[in-house]
Design a protein around this nucleic acid. Structure first.
Length: 267
DNA sequence: ATAATAACCTGAGGGC
DNA sequence: TGCCCTCAGGTTATTA
């Protein structure tokens, strides 16, 4: 492989000796852990993270480099793997040993769609914590893959106020949260992701999941269930959207019955 | 130990 | 037209 690094300053610096590390090795398999892509080579692994604006594409030799194309890896089949990332929140890391033990991956929580992520696990992890549930859902050491949009949507579907202290959540709350997180992510994947501004999927098309959002980005718009204007607050430097009527603090009440029906978008 | 906050980076969009 | 400001996102480093 021939490797060109045009811009090494990503989330973390791209290894300066990347060309030497990659040249002559074969990609044996490609995996994913959380939001990291793992390229397992005959010796060592490449860890890729696309941040919020990153993308990978395969191009032919001679394809002009675009602004924000940061790395080009020439493959033995004649194609080039290009890493493009305008906002540079992504990363390209090298790992000699077991990539799952890399410092960035070793402490990640369970995959949301696997059985290990269940109500008992989530409740056990949360019941001793006192901070608000919504930012906690986005913490990768609790569960990976739940970004801002899905945290907001899962709490709405579960009828839980995003400000609720984790310690106030019951096992039943955890049950609903886990179920809705799994359902949301599953359906979002099927529909090709959620389009936010300039996101496009590998086919260059926008995701279609946005059409089904109940609260995210809907400040002051009517709740699809009760028409109450959707509220907006900031938690941990992130926008939170919720319905003040449908989403109650778990200390005070359970989810309204109408949230269980299929009259609203569930992804 | 937990919890809260700042930082990284660029482009889009709004206001003037 | 163009400048300035704010915001979006995932994750970690730093501070209380």
């Amino acid at each position: 492989m021939r490797v060109e690094v045009y811009q090494p300053r990503l989330r973390w610096d791209v290894p300066h000796d990347l060309p030497a590390l990659l040249t002559g090795h074969v990609v044996e398999r490609i995996e994913r852990r959380g939001k990291y892509i793992l390229l397992r080579l005959t010796r060592g692994s490449v860890l890729l993270h696309l941040g919020m604006s990153g993308s990978l594409r395969l191009v032919e030799t001679g394809t002009p480099r675009l602004t924000h194309d940061h790395v080009d890896i020439a493959l033995s089949n004649g194609l080039h793997l290009r890493l493009h990332d305008p906002r540079r929140f992504g990363a390209l890391l090298w790992c000699d040993g077991d990539p799952l033990q890399h410092p960035r991956l070793a402490k990640l929580g369970p995959e949301p769609l696997e059985d290990a992520f269940d109500a008992a696990y989530l409740h056990q992890r949360l019941h001793t914590r006192h901070s608000a549930i919504k930012p906690m859902l986005m913490q990768a050491d609790i569960v990976v893959g739940v970004g801002n949009i899905y945290a907001n949507e899962a709490l709405f579907l579960s009828g839980i106020d995003p400000r609720t202290p984790c310690s106030a959540l019951t096992l039943q709350d955890a049950q609903r949260l886990v179920g809705h997180i799994k359902q949301l992510l599953q359906r979002a994947i099927e529909q090709g992701g959620t389009t936010l501004r300039d996101f496009v999927n590998p086919h260059g098309k926008p995701g279609y999941f946005q059409q089904t959002l109940n609260v995210y980005g809907r400040r002051d718009e009517p709740c699809r269930v009760c028409t109450t204007p959707i509220a907006h607050i900031v938690q941990a430097q992130r926008s939170t959207f919720y319905c003040p009527h449908c989403q109650k603090n778990a200390l005070l009440s359970a989810a309204p019955e109408n949230l269980s029906k299929n009259s609203i978008n569930q992804g």
